[in-house]
Design a binder for these strands. Structure first.
Length: 270
DNA sequence: AATTGAAGCAACCGCCATCCG
DNA sequence: ACGGATGGCGGTTGCTTCAAT
């Protein structure tokens, strides 16, 4: 790569370049044994001549069992486009809303396929790279939302976790997007334990079904009000409850709330 | 079959925020 | 309050693959 080694890494023998299968296995075993706590420790305990950045990167982006490989679905692509438009290059936040996807993957996809203009009409946006995409419909994946809810706990229990994100959708033509997706992070928890204790199973995703427009009012739904709604909601009936209350949420712009989400790969001692 | 250029992917680097003594 | 250690993030680079010529 031709760059000077990171100033903080004093090890002269730091290995660079592609990871071998053997190295992967060693890192897996080291993490299994010591947990994902300190990457500095892991890099030393593993015996691999890889620095903390390299070990972390390899685990977070490739070895973590929750990583989803393969091409992005049209729904994921539209989410990325929309979220990038609202959040900017907050790839980690964007990735946290796409379960199993990493910021590196999202960024790579964006750099390779980003639309040449953010002001394209709706229909043109669905012909990126001259490959027409089927316009998703609101009811295409209604069950995924509830499923995301139900899967939250299981994911949180893992050593590497999705932030509790999921996918919801609604039609929002005003944003020049064929459909609007959002994940509302309903947690102000700062640790996995807090998350599990205080939010699960209410934590999750609110699908803004039937939302006709995204206005500043829609974005004004703060995490606080959202939390209150969740705290009042009956368990296991999230969507019906909210719709019954006449509420709709779509708040991908709430960076503060997103920042409060548990990091997808929050260190956890096993 | 060989060459070449584009696209995709994997990885590194430096910076910043946070934690902790 | 301060400084070092650490984790995490975004930008960037270089390698690999593959299609076009």
């Amino acid at each position: 790569m031709g760059r000077a080694a990171a100033s903080c890494e004093k090890d002269e023998e730091v290995k660079k370049g592609r990871w071998s299968a053997e190295e992967d296995e060693i890192l897996r075993q080291t993490i299994h044994k010591h947990g994902v706590g300190s990457w500095q420790i892991i890099s030393k305990k593993s015996g691999l001549r890889r620095n903390r950045h390299s070990c972390r990167f390899r685990w977070v982006n490739y070895l973590c069992p929750d990583i989803k490989r393969g091409p992005f679905s049209p729904e994921e692509e539209s989410q990325i486009i929309q979220l990038q438009a609202t959040l900017g290059n907050k790839w980690s936040v964007i990735a946290s809303k796409l379960p199993g996807r990493t910021d590196n993957d999202v960024r790579s996809w964006w750099l390779a396929k980003k639309p040449c203009s953010t002001t394209l009409p709706n229909e043109e946006k669905w012909h990126i790279n001259d490959q027409p995409k089927e316009k998703p419909q609101i009811n295409d994946h209604p069950s995924e939302v509830g499923e995301s809810f139900r899967n939250i706990k299981g994911k949180v229990d893992g050593a590497c976790n999705s932030s509790g994100g999921g996918v919801g959708s609604s039609s929002v033509d005003q944003l020049a997007m064929p459909f609007k997706t959002s994940t509302v992070c309903a947690s102000t928890a700062t640790s996995l334990d807090q998350l599990e204790d205080s939010c699960e199973p209410k934590l999750g995703v609110v699908m803004a079904a039937g939302l006709d427009s995204i206005s500043s009012d829609a974005f004004a739904h703060s995490s606080d009000s959202f939390l209150k709604l969740l705290s009042d909601s009956p368990e296991g009936n999230d969507m019906e409850y909210l719709q019954g209350q006449g509420h709709s949420f779509s708040d991908p712009c709430d960076v503060d709330a997103a920042d409060k989400c548990v990091s997808p790969y929050k260190p956890q001692i096993l």
